[in-house]
Design a protein around this nucleic acid. Sequence first.
DNA 1: CGGATGACGGGTC
DNA 2: AGACCCGCCATCC
Length: 114
Amino acid sequence: MGDSNDFFEKVYAVVRQIPEGRVSSYGAIAKSVGAAKSARMVGYALHASIQNGVDIPAHRVVNRNGLLTGKFHFFSDTLMEQMLHAEGVLVENDRVVDFKRLFWNPSEHINDLL
DNA sequence: CGGATGACGGGTC
DNA sequence: AGACCCGCCATCC
């Protein structure tokens, strides 16, 4: 079953691997599930996860610059930042402080999943 | 059916 | 650094 539902499940599986206090990006996740050119679809999948109440740490996914581009899709527009802050990730002007250091690359841990 | 619309990213200026 | 463009592709209208 290589349909879009499959893609969603793969994305969710990867997002669940992001450790507490760390963050990843749409593009990095897209690569790790073998769809490097579909970073946009990762965002789409995360949006769907919230609508469907899927239990994944979607707040740990930001864009390539560490910007909280998805914050408006949470129940409150400050929830994403609050959740990150609760696990020790600081945010300033919608950007993850020390993004490079906190960045978690799924492809370097691919052996742990699929 | 065709154009617009995104939780994007790489490249260029 | 920041603005801009273009490729990408499922979904929407």
